[in-house]
Design a binder for these strands. Structure first.
Lengths: 343, 343
DNA sequence: TTGAAAGCGCTAACAA
DNA sequence: TTGTTAGCGCTTTCAA
């Protein structure tokens, strides 16, 4: 037999002297197909080296069986955990995953959205690019009724669930913890452009200060890129301050860790001179000395939850309870030595 | 206009009073189409909200435009960097990426391979599951002439390029470095089942000992799962040794770091009592104190290279130079404090 | 330069 | 339970 030739259901049909429709039914476990026929079909398919042509069945069914996922950047431990969780759920549900990264550029995000739309993904999961300030480029999906789920960096939309953690609350707690440890002047390293995530964390920080009768000082708000490099620069800014802070709350761990390292290099004692807290509970947080107090939330779980919600929408496109529209994943404060001042 | 209805080339054809074939040509920049016709087509498409149906054109062209990638686990910083590199190259070349993880199980890898085959991916990139001991389940791709490229955990195959680093050489160098620092008894933390990667690193370690007239002692070879937990257990094994090693070379950084932490907790001084070296240059390596000596090689670059090779094969399926069959990515020794004994 | 027509391989309504 | 038939929307030969 020519190994190059693809076997189709017609080949099987001819061989068994039945119709292609029956072969198709046999192959897809159709309820009304004779059990014997089915077995014959499956055996013949196996023997002849048949492989189903998803391209054709997708066209016929007008379903691609593909879910798209758009993220800012794949190479963070948080995001790869999200993807791992998503991939697990989707593959169990029989869907394929197409992944694209916007590299945190809005322009690229728009292009990707268009490409995914043309590729006819059955559903879409999005964590917005850092820069993104509106979600118009995803409206085409909403209009066509293609399920769209946001996670982590979400966009509020009545028809699109958003899975995130309560950033305000978590950052309120961690700031409050620093205050309880005796910090009076707490600096906050945040982002230049306030994404919803950064904005919420800022809000929690601010509220905690206010509730504890501490002043919110503009000088103590450091707006950065939140990169490793930015952490080092922030350290220098802090070192240069006439009146240094006695605590620092950083919007992410990576930046917190690099800032701590640089301060330590300049003789600052942590937590005695300056207490530190981060956000994310990345691996680094439990390696840096002293270990970093942070907020833990699991990317893997978030990915799982987001994917399950999407699958759910895919299965009952109508029955969309508005209740699951905004989903808060739990997060927890992880207290480590970087914030524990000896009393 | 009914927003639910998908516009097809027939709708455009009817509106412009031309044939669907011409519309198709206009849309895809066919050389023999009148420039004016083309413009009219494009305008009408735009105006009517047309989106091309890749499902249909894929079926017709018998090309899915999809590249599959199978990895053991997505959530490592190395692998997410690889994916990031791959995604960049493939998206620039107009391909979509479908990602699956075998979770290092052979059974799952076999299933995924089958699914990708049925999904008619145009090409496949594979980093083998940890357990995998043969690559028969990928033979169907080879037989059909579907380009297959291995990376990192490769399988030697005359028709499938493998992109990897020279693990033997790198681990030889790092072991030699430990010896030059004065280590006489160097333990090696490796894997239970020797994947090609672990086996090669073991080989380099062994050769370096032999070349320096040191004995290879079976007691100093610790076979583990290479996880964080395994690192802690290895630390206890080392602590319990009658005659402890004065150096440890671990097959990956994560395990090295957790082992170091545990040893430090038990009062071992690094590098004075025991010098350490890892492999991968993960973030943790430059956070742990003392910073970990390791081997650096970039996942992002490896992903880029592997994807480019695949694209290349896709474009000239015949013209496959055997020269690019085994590709060695460069790697470099990164010497840090964990291995520098004061003389 | 354009059109007519066939068909990629499958599924689903309908009929038998 | 099975077969007939008609497409899904596109691309591509062939002829005009």
């Amino acid at each position: 037999m020519d190994p190059e030739k693809e076997i189709t259901i017609y080949d099987i049909a001819k061989k068994l002297n039945i119709s292609a429709a029956t072969v198709s039914r046999g192959l897809m476990d159709h309820p009304s197909v004779n059990i014997n026929t089915k077995q014959k079909v499956v055996e013949a398919a196996q023997e002849m080296g048949y492989r189903s042509n998803h391209l054709a069945s997708n066209l016929r069914k007008k379903k691609s069986n593909i879910i798209g996922i758009i993220v800012g950047n794949l190479n963070s431990s948080f995001m790869s955990n999200v993807i791992a969780g998503v991939e697990k759920v989707l593959s169990e549900a029989g869907y394929n995953l197409i992944i694209s990264q916007s590299l945190d550029s809005v322009a690229k995000e728009v292009n990707i959205a268009q490409a995914m739309y043309n590729n006819r993904v059955d559903g879409l999961m999005v964590s917005l690019a850092y820069e993104t300030e509106n979600a118009d480029h995803f409206e085409s999906f909403v209009k066509r009724g293609i399920p769209l789920v946001y996670f982590d960096r979400v966009w509020p939309h009545p028809k699109c669930p958003g899975i995130e953690i309560d950033n305000v609350k978590a950052s309120y707690h961690i700031t409050d913890h620093l205050i309880k440890q005796g910090c009076k002047r707490i600096a906050h390293i945040t982002a230049f452009r306030l994404s919803s995530v950064a904005a919420d964390r800022y809000k929690g920080y601010e509220q905690a200060l206010i509730d504890n009768n501490l002043r919110v000082e503009e000088d103590l708000i450091l707006r950065t890129q939140l990169t490793l490099k930015a952490g080092i620069e922030a350290a220098h800014t802090i070192l240069a301050m006439a009146k240094r802070p006695d605590g620092v709350f950083v919007t992410n761990d990576a930046c917190a860790v690099s800032c701590m390292q640089e301060l330590k290099r300049h003789g600052i004692r942590i937590p005695d001179d300056i207490a530190f807290a981060g956000f994310n509970n990345d691996t680094e947080a439990s390696i840096i000395e002293p270990n970093l107090t942070t907020v833990n939330y699991k990317g893997y779980d978030m990915g799982e939850v987001a994917a399950k919600i999407l699958i759910n929408r895919l299965n009952n496109s109508e029955n969309v309870s508005p209740a699951d529209n905004k989903l808060i994943q739990k997060s927890e404060l992880v207290i480590r030595d970087s914030s524990l001042k000896k009393k």
